[in-house]
Amino acid sequence: MLSEQATTTVRATLPTIGAAIGDITDLFYKKLFAAHPELLRDLFNRGNQADGSQKRALAGSIAAFATALVEHPQVRPDALIARIAHKHASLGVTRDQYVVVHTHLFAAIVDVLGEAVTPDVARAWDEVYWLMANALIAVEARLYAEAGAVDGSTWRDWEVVRRSRETADVVTFRLRPVDGADAPRFRPGQYVSVQVELADGARQIRQYSLSAAPAETLSITVKRVHGTPDGEVSNHLHAHVREGSRLTLSAPYGDVPSIDADAPLLLISAGIGCTPMVAMLDHLVSVDHAGPVTVLHADRSPAEHALRARHTRLAAELPSAAAHFWYESPDAEGTTEARAGRMDLTDIAVPTAARAYLCGPLPFMRAIRARLIERGVPAADIHYEVFGPDLWLGGE
């Protein structure tokens, strides 16, 4: 891991770097996109750049990695590396791009910290960067090999064979490979990247969870994002993609553990976070899963609960499953078993040795994770998926 000299230097300078990391990453992206505007146009999420979430995620991951190196020098933070590597592989990131990032990141560090960046400090943080970068490169190479892709060539053309409206703002697209090859296998809970060409010529990329079990086709369920600005890709898909349209997809990725064991499962979601949970339920039904499964979901209303009929039906098809839904604005139709308000685990049985899977807004997952730990679920058995930059890894 870090050399002894670098460890001493990083430990001493981590407070200074940490305090300035926001300014460093902000300047880094300005330098990077000035030199390589195609990266903002065709690789980075422009919405996440505009709202600052990608900058915060990068800052958090660098600080978290460096902190782990000095506090636990014999243990590499593999969980952090794996999650970032899966996201990078879904975007087609290549090893040469790490050199580009290094150039502009260290230029930003020097510009922000000035004379504080002595040769010793520069060498120490260079070690940190390349330890992280080389670890990511190695994992990404393995992921590309498993997907049968040459470094970064993860993209294939797919045809939309069915478009289904789930709610006013949610649509499911069922897709098959244009080349007639078999659809790739994947672990329920994984996602694909979707690349679309927008009106200004930019080829923007977004990740969407697969919303059905592995089959001859893949299904993604897309919620139209309203905001300032509106979601570029989700609104494009809703407005322009129909049956017969073609989409460019990555191979499936996502650092989600297998759910094949018969251990008790907790599948907990909110909003559009139900999509990977429905895929998991679909898979569990297909393999005749016999273990106990508790399905918990929170939403604004039954009308906004995407895939509600499938969510309910699949849970009912499992022999040892129970489903509980919460709606902030419940209505009378078909929701007699639902609860009003926000999710509350007070009277929900949490089985011993349960494994929990969470997906939804970050504040929701933080709160539920805390309740599960209070109820005796080990942190190592609580898995989560974040839509967008993973601010949780950085401690936000």
Rank of each mutant, 00 (worst) to 15 (best):
H240Y: 12
A107G: 13
F186Q: 00
E127L: 07
R142N: 14
G254R: 03
E243S: 10
G395D: 11
A316V: 11
H102V: 00
A322H: 15
T221H: 08
L237Y: 08
R310K: 13
T335K: 02
A85Y: 02
R163S: 12
A6M: 11
K30C: 05
G341F: 09
V161M: 02
A380C: 05
R174K: 11
V285S: 09
P292Y: 06
L284Y: 05
T25W: 01
T16Q: 15
M277L: 13
A35I: 01
L43S: 09
D23V: 04
G22L: 08
P257G: 07
A12Y: 04
W155Y: 08
R187P: 00
W158M: 09
A35M: 04
F387D: 10
A322K: 15
D381V: 05
A149N: 09
L32K: 02
A116N: 14
K31D: 11
R83H: 12
P389S: 02
I373F: 02
S211H: 09
T16Y: 07
A309Y: 11
Y253I: 08
A116Q: 15
V117H: 04
V222W: 05
H297Q: 14
D179P: 06
A135V: 07
T118S: 15
R123H: 13
E243D: 13
G18F: 03
L91P: 02
I268C: 00
A57I: 03
A135H: 07
H88F: 03
L32H: 02
V93L: 12
V117C: 06
A34C: 05
A66M: 06
T221G: 11
V256N: 00
A370H: 14
S250P: 10
G18V: 09
G60W: 00
A202P: 06
L391N: 07
D169H: 14
A20V: 04
L362R: 13
H102C: 05
E159H: 10
A135N: 10
S90K: 03
Y98L: 02
R46H: 08
G360T: 06
A356K: 00
Q54T: 01
A261T: 15
G244K: 01
R246H: 15
